[in-house]
Design a protein around this nucleic acid. Structure first.
Lengths: 222, 222
DNA sequence: GTTTCATTAAAACGTTTGTTTGAATCATAC
DNA sequence: GTATGATTCAAACAAACGTTTTAATGAAAC
């Protein structure tokens, strides 16, 4: 569990964040103790409370650190699209790429920890912890709203509720593709040594196929 | 936390399993204590260890109880298809329905706890706990193998690796559609009060759209 | 050199954790 | 009724938990 490589890299604060990010991803929030974090980071036990206050605030900071950048990058990509189109309607595939492609590019960064974080984020989507949910929702609100609005504009003939559902499904496919430990991997042998460069184009074409699929018909209630 | 409605329903064993299932879904394995389980079930603290041995074995039994039935139902649906086709090739959409539709029908059973279990299963796919992974993989192995073989036969012109990827993506979309607490729900307001009858046809058409999407092309490595 | 303030350190705090114990209770068989 | 085996019960166990405390250490300001 202990891994103290000379204490060379970074200050105490970011050492704690890096260690926490990885351990939360591997063991969940409740499965990761303060002592695991501080020994992995090579710092004193009290350092977490000193720098972050409580464990919950540490969790919050682990997300905030990366999520702010991710959603900023997504919005920048969307604005670039809108600027390029100069008033014309956007292709849905470009919008999807601005949102999901940006996340996949972050997940492809294994070295800098982007991959670890995206795995953590993926598993957190299914963690109904009220405290984390609330925080994630606030952090995502503006970004999701803007992208949904863009999709509504790009697909004016499609019922907005259907677009919402499909966005939901796309989120799921992506999260699981990144974070899913997956029964399959253990049955069939690992795919490609977690090489994310293989994942991105395959997932994008799947997502677009789902987005463009003919709408379902309902026998039942409206 | 305590909810002891007269101790009317079922024996101690199944009362514990029901309580554990719900609490694991809501709080995760580490976030759920023995005391939470036993007080929710209205039984003595020592009852879990008496009936199941350890917490880990209880977790195992929570999954085994439902997963055996689910995968049995999936395989029965597949065999019914094969019988009906009488040697002819199966439509991929029917195979997908036999696997994912069966799960969705289980998730639609709110009363009997099927919905709770599917939520738990969904969040467990992204929980890399080695003990749980191992168990899930064993429990899934045969079923997944049979369905993949059926898809390979139904789509002989498609590279098997691509089919494997898309199965992976479909698993993700479904898991998240059921278990995902989702930034969206908090941004946009809940969809339809978790009514699973709305979910199934929408998800199925999304899955089939993704499955049929044109294959991605790679600029990069094979 | 001394003061000052931010950081680190070791030790302890009271709770809660999963599990075990040994006696009490129950239903069934003789 | 009494013996038997399974189950339930209250109580206690050591270990681990998040957090706090108080003293030691560090570097910069005067």
């Amino acid at each position: 569990m202990t891994e103290v490589p000379g204490k060379a890299a970074g200050d105490t604060r970011s050492r704690i964040l890096d260690a926490a990010e990885r351990l939360f991803m591997e063991n969940g929030f409740d499965g990761t103790s303060m002592r695991m974090i501080t020994s992995q980071a090579g710092v004193n036990l009290a350092a977490v409370n000193y720098h972050f206050g409580t464990k919950e605030l540490l969790i919050q900071e682990v997300f905030r650190r990366r999520l702010t950048d991710l959603n900023r990058a997504r919005l920048a990509a969307l604005e670039a699209l809108e600027l390029e189109a100069a008033g014309a309607s956007l292709k849905p595939s470009r919008i999807v790429d601005a949102f999901f492609g940006t996340a996949l590019r972050m997940a492809a960064d294994v070295e800098g920890g982007g991959h670890t974080f995206m795995c953590l984020l993926g598993r957190t989507y299914t963690e109904p912890n009220e405290f984390v949910r609330q925080f994630l929702a606030e952090e995502y609100a503006e970004c999701v709203e803007r992208f949904l609005a863009a999709l509504y504009r790009a697909l004016p003939e499609v019922d907005r509720k259907e677009i919402l559902w499909r966005f939901h499904f796309m989120m799921g496919a992506m999260s699981y593709a990144i974070a899913g430990t997956d029964a399959l991997q253990l049955v069939t042998g690992k795919f490609d040594d977690e090489n994310p460069s293989q994942l991105a184009p395959r997932l994008m074409s799947f997502l677009l196929g789902g987005l463009r699929a003919p709408l379902a018909e309902f026998g039942g209630l409206k």
